[in-house]
Deep mutational scan, measured.
Amino acid sequence: MQRVNMIMAESPGLITICLLGYLLSAECTVFLDHENANKILNRPKRYNSGKLEEFVQGNLERECMEEKCSFEEAREVFENTERTTEFWKQYVDGDQCESNPCLNGGSCKDDINSYECWCPFGFEGKNCELDVTCNIKNGRCEQFCKNSADNKVVCSCTEGYRLAENQKSCEPAVPFPCGRVSVSQTSKLTRAETVFPDVDYVNSTEAETILDNITQSTQSFNDFTRVVGGEDAKPGQFPWQVVLNGKVDAFCGGSIVNEKWIVTAAHCVETGVKITVVAGEHNIEETEHTEQKRNVIRIIPHHNYNAAINKYNHDIALLELDEPLVLNSYVTPICIADKEYTNIFLKFGSGYVSGWGRVFHKGRSALVLQYLRVPLVDRATCLRSTKFTIYNNMFCAGFHEGGRDSCQGDSGGPHVTEVEGTSFLTGIISWGEECAMKGKYGIYTKVSRYVNWIKEKTKLT
Rank of each mutant, 00 (worst) to 15 (best):
18 C>K: 02
334 I>P: 01
403 G>L: 10
433 E>S: 15
408 Q>G: 13
167 Q>N: 09
286 E>A: 09
347 K>R: 13
442 G>M: 13
145 C>Y: 02
179 G>N: 02
238 F>T: 04
252 C>I: 01
323 E>W: 06
326 V>S: 12
229 G>Y: 13
264 T>I: 03
2 Q>V: 13
106 G>H: 01
228 V>D: 07
199 V>T: 12
435 C>W: 03
201 Y>N: 14
340 E>T: 11
187 S>P: 15
137 K>V: 10
264 T>V: 05
181 V>A: 15
131 D>Q: 09
14 L>D: 02
304 N>C: 10
442 G>R: 09
88 W>S: 15
146 K>Y: 12
361 H>P: 14
305 Y>T: 02
436 A>D: 12
269 V>G: 04
108 C>R: 01
218 T>W: 12
34 H>V: 10
184 S>D: 15
439 G>Q: 08
164 A>M: 11
399 F>K: 04
61 E>V: 06
171 E>N: 07
262 I>Y: 00
277 V>K: 00
333 P>S: 05
200 D>A: 12
279 A>V: 04
54 E>H: 10
452 N>M: 06
124 E>V: 03
77 V>D: 15
94 G>Y: 07
211 L>Q: 12
24 L>Y: 07
119 C>R: 00
117 C>H: 01
252 C>N: 01
326 V>D: 12
20 L>S: 02
72 E>L: 10
290 T>Y: 10
99 S>G: 10
18 C>H: 04
2 Q>I: 08
67 E>H: 11
427 G>T: 01
327 L>R: 05
340 E>H: 15
252 C>K: 00
225 T>W: 11
18 C>P: 02
345 F>Y: 13
402 G>K: 14
3 R>C: 14
247 K>E: 08
266 A>M: 04
6 M>F: 12
287 T>G: 10
97 C>A: 00
15 I>T: 05
211 L>S: 13
306 N>Q: 08
91 Y>T: 04
315 D>I: 00
430 S>M: 10
50 G>L: 09
178 C>H: 01
193 E>F: 07
96 Q>H: 14
230 G>W: 15
225 T>H: 10
354 S>K: 07
167 Q>W: 07
429 I>C: 06
426 T>I: 01
213 N>L: 06
226 R>E: 15
391 Y>C: 10
103 L>F: 06
125 G>K: 00
353 V>Y: 04
367 L>E: 13
419 V>H: 12
181 V>P: 13
108 C>G: 00
436 A>R: 12
376 L>R: 05
229 G>H: 06
279 A>L: 02
26 A>C: 14
38 N>P: 08
398 G>D: 03
358 R>A: 09
380 A>Y: 14
417 T>S: 09
